[in-house]
Design a protein around this nucleic acid. Structure first.
Lengths: 143, 143
DNA sequence: AGTGCCTACTTCCCGTTGGAAAGTTTCTCT
DNA sequence: AGAGAAACTTTCCAACGGGAAGTAGGCACT
């Protein structure tokens, strides 16, 4: 048990948890990461701020105000709240530098980075299939 | 333009849409698919109802009541509402069979199936990293 | 004929969540 | 003394989601 490799631990975790059960902790976790602000924050910190993948894409630390500017439409309350939740879950780190005014930066951990691979796919899927979806909506609304 | 291959169309779409912009339609689409019920419904219809990937995993049509039972905790209102939205977006089809009582089945389209690959990853990530996240929370709450 | 039952919703009411905007803190510069 | 800047925090209100009850259409049993 104590000598288990990471891959084995994950394999066992998959047997212990079932996200379809409302009482399962992994269901609560899935609910939390299936959130629009979580997905956008992970995309931002993961480095894919550009419209499509570019060579300069790389995870990087970002300041609070930088995130607020990039995630158009997020309220300060939700941004702070979501960042704190992600910090608590170990997906990112929060670093306060005592300059004046104070500088706060957020950066993905390895755990956050592993989830970023999936959230990035969500974003690209949305951008890539937008046209198809709009076409389906028109068709649906016409009938 | 009319002779573009799917891959080319998607590449162009990625340049036209940027999900970080609040006004961009792809942002609205990302908001919609970054939803806990959407993720769970796609996982269910995608066939991975088991706790971990098994040979019998395959996309399959499911009845309304079957979905309601599998997605523990979903209200009828949200289930209906989310299914209709996904139908409108072309991610799944709704089929009414005039048996008695009526039978309604839902099934992923190819478009829905392409997104299912990503939502399945979200679910497995949650189940696989649950322990790590819980450990981080304990650590965070202790300080 | 009437009562009951079944699925798949739809409607109503209300508590929780999220957004908008204004307030707070700390220090520096003029 | 007053302005200003970053990163929140608080307050107020509208909207979203959950729970429960109601609806429709048709068989089936008494």
């Amino acid at each position: 048990m104590t000598t288990m490799k990471a891959a084995q631990r994950q394999a066992q975790a998959r047997e212990e948890y079932n996200a379809f059960l409302a009482v399962c902790p992994s269901r609560q976790l899935l609910d939390r990461i299936s959130d629009k602000w979580v997905v956008l924050i992970l995309c931002a910190l993961g480095g894919d701020a550009a419209q499509r993948p570019v060579a300069s894409d790389a995870p990087r630390a970002m300041r609070y105000s930088e995130l607020a500017r990039l995630l158009a439409g997020v309220s300060q309350k939700m941004l702070t709240q979501t960042l704190r939740a992600l910090e608590r879950d170990g997906l990112l780190t929060r670093t306060v530098t005592p300059t004046v005014p104070v500088t706060v930066t957020y950066e993905l951990t390895d755990l956050g980075l592993s989830l970023h691979r999936t959230t990035r796919e969500m974003r690209y899927w949305a951008q890539a299939h937008m046209g198809e979806v709009l076409a389906h909506r028109d068709e649906y609304d016409a009938s």
